[in-house]
Design a protein around this nucleic acid. Sequence first.
DNA 1: TTCCATGATTCTAA
DNA 2: TTAGAATCATGGAA
Length: 436
Amino acid sequence: MEDGQRMYSQQGGLTNMSGNVLPQYNMGQDEPSDQRKQEIGDILQQIMTITDQSLDEAQARKHTLNCHRMKPALFSVLCEIKEKTVLSIRNSQEEEPPDPQLMRLDNMLIAEGVAGPEKGGGSSAAANATAAASGGQPDSAIEHSDYRAKLAQIRQIYHTELEKYEQSDGSEIKNSDYEAKLAQIRQVYQTEYGKYEQACNEFTTHVVNLLREQSRTRPIAPKEIERMVTIIRKKFAAIEMQLKQSTCEAVMILRSRFLDARRKRRNFSKQATELLNEYFYSHLSNPYPSEEAKEELARKCGITVSQVSNWFGNKRIRYKKNITKAQEEANVYAAKSAAAHEGQGAAGYNVGGGQAGMYMNLNGGDNYQSSDNSVGDNVQNQITPHPRSQNGSPHDQKPDDSTDSWCAGAFMQGLDGEGDNYDGSSDEPGLKRPKI
DNA sequence: TTCCATGATTCTAA
DNA sequence: TTAGAATCATGGAA
């Protein structure tokens, strides 16, 4: 106050809010105290009457004040005083490092593909968030009804989706579903984030303009406006944080459900298992379906190509491990196929729509009665490893009916006395070795 | 509740 | 990248 007092005393009187020239107020010690009290009382009295004045009168006095020759100097001093007192205290509180929580959320959203760098992470978002709503109302930004409604909407969407999956008895979430849901999250997030940024910018602009306007009638330094923008930005950061938290939560729930669904085993339908087994046993000497055959099987079975691959992988290894049981199963499928194609000669099951299966020509099909173990005897002792284990990488292998029999070369020869279906020259996709 | 069958996952080798 | 092998985890029958 010392500087301010000096200004007053040196310039000799100001126009008060009522337009009257105020008596020179001198803090000097040479005036009688009664006189000073009287002058102060006059000033206060005039200030108190301001509220009773009309707008026109106030406007007129505002204009008078703005034009007063001492105004710039007075405001400068007052701004300086504010800077040294209140603002310096705030300043120490504002220089904080970036919020680590917000950074983690940003990282996750970027990693999940919900928020790209172009959308701005925490830092850029904060920079863009030249602020918004609360404007001095403690934490009221979070209470902004529109944003709360939108955040609730995000939650609602995914709770609804979760209920759907639960009601569908845990049916699997396919990759396409996951991606679609993730895209939906991204869309909602980006929409809301855009609105958030817009609101921040609009509100900040509004506040800045307001402060600039007010700076004509009260001492507001540019630095103070900057600080106000920072404060507003912080208030809006709470909204940003909540939006990102909700989005992360939705992504985590979706991912969790997706992984659970993948992990959860579901038996294939009986029909699907039948189709796979038929293919397997009809291509027993080379049970490596091509990509085309896998796709065809997947389509027919209502499963994915990966599941077909898994199935054949498991089937091959388990066939070898328990050849006796597998052989019995082979007999069953052979008998089925024989019955299905009775009177048509050799016509094994073939998903790829190509050549006939191998076991139809053996002894006229008589050997495939379940009581007949002749086939089993053939199978049991003639398992050969996959050519890769004999000759190196399967990448170099070509199907070979005599030396490249997958598991039971002699058995297959016996089954398919007229030549096999596994000739590398075959054009049938289902009979080729899998693409390596 | 136990046991087996089976789909899925992971690791290694080629 | 694929197959083999081992293993995990779950469904379903007994």
